[in-house]
Amino acid sequence: MNDIPQHDDLPLPDYDHLPVGVLGSKITGLDSPGLQRLLDYERAHGNRLPVVQVLENRMEALRQGAGPSGAVPSASPEVSGTSAGSAVSPETSGPPVNPPSQGTPFNPSQPR
């Protein structure tokens, strides 16, 4: 096994925070040495079976002739930390909600 890479040496930014479901699409731009660094790092740190399987499957695809496709993303929108808020507008919002006839939490009904 190679020297264990440190987090700052990894070819993917925020690798530790990537959901397993998007990892497969994020590693398609990596070559064999970059993918091997991720695999070595994962085995030494988290050793999560689903992650190791995704990395090993991609490594096998590279061995069988697949090539890196596209560029490795420099930033990950899944973990960017910025939230744009809701895209709801008056045209796409639901109908107005009427309070119940017995009152609202801020205006409880009066006894009869």
Rank of each mutant, 00 (worst) to 15 (best):
Q6P: 07
Q6L: 15
H7A: 15
D8S: 14
D9H: 13
L10K: 12
P11L: 08
D14L: 07
Y15C: 04
D16I: 12
D16P: 05
D16V: 14
D16E: 14
H17L: 12
H17W: 10
P19E: 08
V20F: 05
V20D: 08
V20Q: 07
V22T: 10
L23Q: 04
G24I: 08
G24K: 13
S25Y: 12
S25D: 15
K26H: 13
I27K: 01
I27E: 02
T28M: 12
D31A: 03
D31H: 03
D31R: 03
S32K: 10
S32T: 09
P33S: 09
P33V: 04
P33C: 01
G34Q: 06
G34P: 00
G34L: 00
G34E: 01
L35Y: 03
L35N: 02
R37K: 15
L38P: 01
L38E: 01
L38V: 06
D40Y: 09
E42I: 05
R43W: 02
A44E: 10
A44W: 11
H45P: 01
N47M: 12
N47W: 11
N47C: 13
N47V: 10
P50M: 06
V51S: 02
V52E: 07
Q53F: 05
L55G: 00
E56P: 03
E56V: 11
N57L: 09
N57A: 14
R58A: 01
R58D: 00
R58P: 00
M59D: 10
E60A: 11
E60T: 11
E60M: 10
L62V: 05
G65N: 07
G65V: 07
A66E: 14
G67T: 15
P68C: 07
P68L: 05
S69D: 15
S69E: 15
S69W: 10
G70N: 08
A71I: 13
P73R: 09
S74C: 11
A75E: 13
A75T: 14
A75S: 15
A75Q: 10
S76T: 12
S76L: 11
S76R: 06
S76E: 14
P77N: 01
P77K: 03
E78D: 06
V79Y: 01
V79T: 15
G81V: 01
T82G: 10
T82H: 13
S83T: 06
A84R: 09
A84P: 09
V88G: 00
S89F: 04
S89P: 03
P90N: 10
P90T: 02
E91M: 02
E91N: 04
T92C: 04
T92D: 02
S93M: 14
S93G: 12
P96R: 10
P96S: 11
P99Q: 06
